[in-house]
Design a binder for these strands. Structure first.
Lengths: 193, 193
DNA sequence: ATATGACTAACGACCGTTAGTTAGGAGGAT
DNA sequence: ATCCTCCTAACTAACGGTCGTTAGTCATAT
């Protein structure tokens, strides 16, 4: 049994039941060991949680970076919409996103500061990156008719709206929402109709 | 001490700490009684929670209804944007919204079905009402260039995106998000630029 | 020989809950 | 008016269970 396997089980439990709702016994059961064995790898529940949290944020950052690097040659609209689709597809089979969203929206109140010290820089960086992307992809006579920052904020709003539906709506409802909201967003920020 | 006061304290605690994270002791302390006294009014923690939940959904429904009735004479855009603003302003001083959003997004896993039996009908009704509003407000040669249902879904997506920012972003960030995203939405669904 | 990572046993604290008690107020009968 | 009764809503004490955590032990592999 490795620390990585424990973190994986913990991730799933934290995502499903929250920090307070997830017990070390459940986590231990999930990966086939006894509760005190966790303490051979982590000094406390809090320690386990914070390590999972840091890992998730790191991977999340990496994944976003990878996506936009891989699809840099696509037209801007395809890049942006594809990112949401990609996000959705991974989410379906990935407790990581649920954990991520849960901790961003409702961090355990005992660890509020620890969580938010990761969340705020992450969101700011994401907004800046998007602003640059929107500004760079559409120079002087480009298609975007909004200020890049405004288009970025609106995009993040859309992203969150989709994310919310992911949390409880299932795949069909999420797709429906994306297909309805994307054209509205795109025609709202671009010259196209 | 009345049952209503206990429910109010419970609401605040459930909103802040979640179902599992909120203990009866905390709730009792908040309203100045001892823990077992809660059982004079509620048969269990679950009972208390479910009563709070039902109340919140009832009031939420009522509030939405009242808003659109009061502002029925306004132009459609003002009605729709005003609703978001109204929502935001009430939220600032109201644990009720936080509770509502928390339970919609991350219901306690032990009571998942009870919560979702309230959530799904609520959301469906809201979508239908919005569709009717958008369809009725903009007949044949109206301003909306989208199918009413599509405009409604996109509106709900916007609403959720704003709600997310309310949860952790504070008032300033929420306003910034609304001011950025609203024009994008409106020009995306209407003839106006 | 030493270190790792499992284990069992048990700790104190807190959880939701129940039992049993008590103060206070309402209503009715004398 | 006063007594008696009943009900309500609070209380203290304590229950069994689970929580996170620690101590101590033991097999395995380096």
């Amino acid at each position: 049994m490795s620390a990585a396997e424990i973190k994986q089980s913990a991730l799933a439990r934290f995502a499903q039941d929250g920090y307070e709702g997830a017990s070390l016994k459940h986590i231990a059961d999930d990966c086939g060991i006894k509760k005190p064995s966790i303490y051979a790898h982590f000094s406390s529940k809090e320690d386990l949680f914070l390590q999972v949290l840091a890992d998730v944020f790191e991977r999340q950052k990496q994944r976003i970076e990878d996506y936009f690097e891989e699809h840099a040659s696509l037209p801007l609209e395809a890049q942006l919409k594809g990112f949401v689709v990609d996000w959705q597809q991974i989410y379906e089979r990935d407790a990581e996103r649920k954990f991520f969203l849960r901790m961003v929206f409702f961090p355990p109140s005992a660890l509020y500061d620890d969580v938010m010290n990761l969340v705020y820089p992450f969101l700011d960086e994401q907004e800046q990156k998007l602003s640059r992307l929107l500004a760079a992809g559409c120079p002087v006579q480009g298609r975007i008719i909004r200020h890049p920052r405004q288009a970025a904020i609106a995009y993040l709003t859309l992203l969150d709206g989709i994310a919310v539906e992911m949390l409880y709506g299932g795949e069909a409802r999420t797709t429906r929402r994306l297909e309805a909201a994307w054209p509205v967003y795109w025609s709202g920020v671009s010259r196209e109709r």
